[in-house]
Amino acid sequence: MATSTPKPKKVNRLGLALSEYRGRPSTLCAGCGHDAVSSQIMKAFYEMGINPHQVAKMSGIGCSSKTPAYFLGASHGFNGVHGRMPSLATGALLGNRDLICVGLSGDGDTASIGLGQFCHLLRRNVPMIYIIENNGVYGLTKGQFSATSDLGSQLKSGVINDLPPIDCCALAIEMGCSYVARSFAGDPKQLVALLQGALSHSGTALLDVISPCVTFNNHESSTKGYKWAKEHEELLHNIDFIPYFEPIETVEYAEGEMQEIEMHDGSHIRLRKVDQDYDPMSRSGAERLLSKTRESGEFLTGLIYVNPVARNFFDLLDFSESPLATLPQEKVRPGPKVLEETMQELM
């Protein structure tokens, strides 16, 4: 026993172990898709070597919005009010633009009560990651329809949904979102790659993650359940992400089979085309494809649309590079001469 050397602990570029990206134990239902998403967030942030203290986790209300407590326990978090996480996140970033902001929301929080703030966040291209854990149902209040519930889907009580679902990805593209992706909570490889891409993106990165509700919306007819999703998922690309701090040579992808997009920080995202010649930088192409797959009753996963050079909200505001929150008094309180000048003008 004394002779064996302990296995060296695996750490990232900051010297942090994956365990240091954990949060508190989840209180969600066993098997909840949201917990799988939390795991992939931890993995993505760990692999990218993000320092947890730089992260701000923001959320609204609902099952999904509880999850920031279950990952990155060493980061500040703010669990606000229902449907209004975008404004809190925008404000937090105005206060401290150095924060790496990840927002967690659900389909009710985003597409029902929060639709207005969601749209305006995307319009502004606020630099943050916005994750929708989309299960097409209200979990915490015990299983009511949300605005992404499938048309004709049925509650356990037998009530049928008569309203069409909102496609958050299509809406996001319409609103000018500069990184629109969809994934599935049961596809860790793709999700981690999309999260890493989102971490390198300089505007709003939207991830619509189909995350089945094991309790209220996992029956056979639900398009947000595991069974349905596994059967109908249409992979857009095999996606792999190469962070800028890893040598590019290790990539296995053969030329001709992939499309490379340079992210704002110099890292590259590479998309492997499966059976379509797909250009995620074409907005109209993305809209057409989304519409097509929707018509055929399938959902598209992968990076659906990206504009890596879109001006973000900070560019537009053109404000101080150092966080506004901690500017010293001499920077934010003009001197007596300024007061004198303003008084003179009013005389």
Binding site: A56, F78, S87, T90, G91, A92, G95, N96
Partner: peptide
Amino acid sequence: LAALGMAIGAGWAGA
């Protein structure tokens, strides 16, 4: 709502 939400977010961040 958003106006105050942003102000609160900023206040939380220390602004």
